[in-house]
Design a protein around this nucleic acid. Structure first.
Length: 250
DNA sequence: GCGACAG
DNA sequence: ATCTTGTCGC
């Protein structure tokens, strides 16, 4: 299987990115710096090799208090067209601090385990357009709970150096028991005898979400943050906001 | 060996 | 992910 792909930072972005709103709450200004840690893979084997190499950069401990949190999500329109959104919230009040949407194209075919390569260029572009630097990235998908221990959340965390976590909506790798019915209960996702994430009940009477570490964060902190960011709905507020922005442009 | 497999 | 109706429940 041969694949031609645009390199990171050079993905086609027809329609150009759109900065929907700027920061207005006096947060410190800063720009997310994205490291160029690898060239763009031209095949499945190359993509897997990149994951095997970058996984060694993942750090599984880090801060447990965050001032601002960013939710990231991508919406697909037809074949390869997509819109990537990042919404930064005040971690305490959940007020919106900044929002960015960019329109582009999927940068890789969908291959389970290589999902990150589809969305990476557009998400990186959106992060680079932020005028604030979020303290935590809340990603739509998996982190450590991945066939090679390096899902989208790990990838974005390592490229930006920011703490990150992954929230999946459906099971992927490993096995788990159903968590107890009460909000806040969880059960471990086990892969090769190792706990790599948790099935977490963010709301009673609904399916759990599947959380895992991305970068510079512990699993306990991941669990705590996802619960705190999901006071009302199944999905954390930053991801819901990003989903809405990517979907409806507003 | 075969199928299933984040979005 | 996306294509799709109605329906039950808060």
């Amino acid at each position: 299987m041969r694949i031609r792909i645009p390199p990171i930072g050079k993905a086609r972005l027809p329609g150009d990115g759109t900065c929907v709103a700027g920061s207005w709450k006096g947060h410190r200004l800063g720009r997310v710096r994205v490291k160029q840690l690898h060239s763009w893979p031209g095949s499945v084997a190359e993509a897997e090799a990149i994951q095997e190499r970058l996984r060694l950069h993942v750090e599984l401990t880090g801060p447990d208090v965050f001032t601002t949190v960013a939710g990231l999500d991508v919406h697909y329109h037809g074949d390869d067209a997509l819109s990537a959104a990042v919404v930064v919230l005040d971690a305490g009040t959940l007020d919106v601090v900044e929002r960015v949407v960019v329109h582009g194209r999927a940068a890789f075919p969908y291959v389970p385990g290589l999902f990150a390569f589809r969305e990476l260029p557009a998400l990186v572009e959106a992060l680079e357009r932020l005028t604030v630097t979020p303290d935590l990235l809340v990603c739509d998908g998996y982190g450590l709970a991945h066939p090679r221990g390096f899902g989208l959340a790990c990838h974005l965390g390592v490229l930006t150096g920011l703490p990150s976590l992954g929230v999946g909506k459906t099971p992927f790798v490993g096995t788990h028991d159903a968590p107890a019915p009460a909000r806040g209960s969880w059960s471990p996702i086990v892969l090769d005898g190792t706990p790599v994430g948790r099935a977490l009940r963010t709301r009673a009477g609904t399916k759990p979400v599947y959380v895992s570490q991305g970068h510079r964060i512990t699993l306990d902190t991941v669990t705590e943050q996802v619960l705190r960011l999901s006071p009302r709905f199944r999905l954390p507020e930053p991801v819901r906001q990003a989903d809405h922005l990517a979907r409806h442009g507003t």
